[in-house]
Computed example of a mutant assay.
Amino acid sequence: MRLTLPDRYFDYLPWAAATLLVAGIVHIVSVLLMPTVAPRDAYARVVAAVGAAPANKLALLPPMAPGAEALPFEDPAFAEAVCVFDLTQGMLRVTSNADGEDYLALSFHARAGRVFHAITDRAAIKGKIDVVIGDARQMDALQGASDEAPPQEVRITAPTKRGFVLVRAFARRPSEQTRARERLAGVTCERFDPPKD
């Protein structure tokens, strides 16, 4: 029996499907691994942007200029500051006053740049934002050391020992950039030592 042309195409169909399946798997794996193996990940770019600023201290980023952005996808309507943290040196406390009028946002990023928590001035308690960051072991120790009273701060467990906090203040008009940067200067980012019993 002689094969016709369409029958020959059906012989190649399983090979074509297998090739597409393997190509799809390789593509998905490479996209998922890219943040981990990229030489200039988010953490490296933030460290380069703040220069010699020490860990666990807030550093203002330079005003955004076209072609000279410190971080990708920056919005010129925001003034930005970064606090690079290293939890091997201890827990971190980030505090700020919030007046309810001026937008202030904090996003907490793991070593690879993934956001693991975010908070805005709307979450302020009695006009104050107070956040403590630690790894799982540090948070367990803090929970065990605290008394029965509920904590007054937001406690966040970081998935990695190193990362950064991006603080953004909104300026409604370009003329308000200086005021937005002054609001960022009022944010504190410092090492937190839990109270001893």
Rank of each mutant, 00 (worst) to 15 (best):
A118M: 10
L5G: 00
D99Y: 05
P62G: 11
A145M: 02
S96L: 05
I125P: 00
A18I: 02
Q152R: 14
A136Y: 04
R8N: 06
S96E: 07
Q177T: 12
L32Y: 04
Q152P: 01
V82R: 08
T19P: 00
K161Q: 15
Y103S: 13
D197H: 14
V37M: 12
A68R: 15
L5M: 00
A18S: 07
T19W: 02
Y103P: 07
A98Q: 02
I133N: 00
L58E: 03
D99P: 02
L20S: 04
L58N: 05
P6W: 03
I28A: 15
Q177K: 08
Q138A: 14
E101M: 12
A81Y: 00
H27I: 01
T188Q: 15
E153F: 02
R8M: 07
L32M: 10
P159M: 08
K161P: 07
T120E: 05
V50N: 11
L61F: 12
L104W: 08
L184A: 01
G113W: 10
R111K: 14
L32K: 04
A53E: 11
T88S: 15
T188G: 13
L92H: 03
V94I: 11
T178Y: 00
D147H: 09
A16N: 01
Q143M: 08
F164W: 09
D193Y: 10
R2P: 04
G134N: 04
A52H: 09
V132C: 00
D121V: 01
T160P: 11
N56G: 07
